[in-house]
Amino acid sequence: MSDSTASNVESIAQMDQLPHKTGSLQPRAESPLYHADLATLSAHSADAGGVEIKEVKLLGHLVLRGSIEDAEFLSGVKEVLGLDLPGPLQSSLQGEFIAYWVSPNEWLVLVPGQQAFQLERDMRSAMSGNFAIVNVSGGQTVICLSGANAVDVLKKSTPYDVHNKNFPVGKVVTSVFAKTQALIFRSGPESWELIVRRSFSDYVWLWLQDACIEYGLVIKD
C-alpha cells in the first residue's frame, strides 16, 4: 500500500495526505477556523487591546508515541528533527520544529505543513521498535494569544495555575480549557499558544471572543 524504505515502514501505512496539484488546480484547504473568517474580522478589528488573537494555520502536527527510555527512539527523533524530546511539561524548539511534551509517552511535534510526510518517513527510517507516529494535521489548530491580558483570559478558561512562578516561558500543559481541553504553551512573557481540536475550535473561538470583551480584542490574520 505504501512506499517502503525500512522494515517498520512496511508494517505501517504511511500516506502523504496533502494534494500535489498546483496553481488554480490546487484543492482549497480550510483550517479549522476558516469559517470564522479571521481575515475579514482582522480588517475591522481594533488596533490596540489587551489581547491579540491569531490562528497559525495548516501546520504539520505529528504525534509521537514512544518511551523516554528507548535510546533509539530518542536518537531517531534527534537525527531527523535535530531536537531532544523534552521532559515532562517542557518544550523544545529547533528551527521551524517544536516539540511539546504531552504525557509520559507522548509528544506533539509541529512542523511546516508540507514537511510532515517526509519527516514522518525519515523518523520511521531512523528508528525501530515500539513507537508510533500519527499525523493529526487536519484534526487540530494553533491559536496564538498575546497581550497584557492574555493571562487573564487563560485564568478565566483553565483551572491550571498560569502564574510566572508556576508557568514560565517554554512550559506546556494539556488541561481543561473552558468545557473542552487544550494544549497550553507559554511562548513568551505575554504570549501563549493554544492547540485545540478541530471540532471544538468554533466553541473555543466563541469562548475566547467573549472572554476578551472586557480587555479589548485585536484579531490578526
Binding site: 469559517h35 468545557k179 478541530r198 471544538f200 466553541y203 472572554a211
Partner: peptide, 18 residues
C-alpha cells in the same frame, strides 16, 4: 458564569458543517 446560552456546552462541528 459564562457557561450559558451559546457557551453552555461545546458544539462540535464537522468540516462540512457550513
Amino acid at each position: 458564569g459564562r457557561h450559558c446560552k451559546e457557551l453552555f456546552d461545546p458544539k462540535r462541528f464537522s468540516a462540512m458543517h457550513k
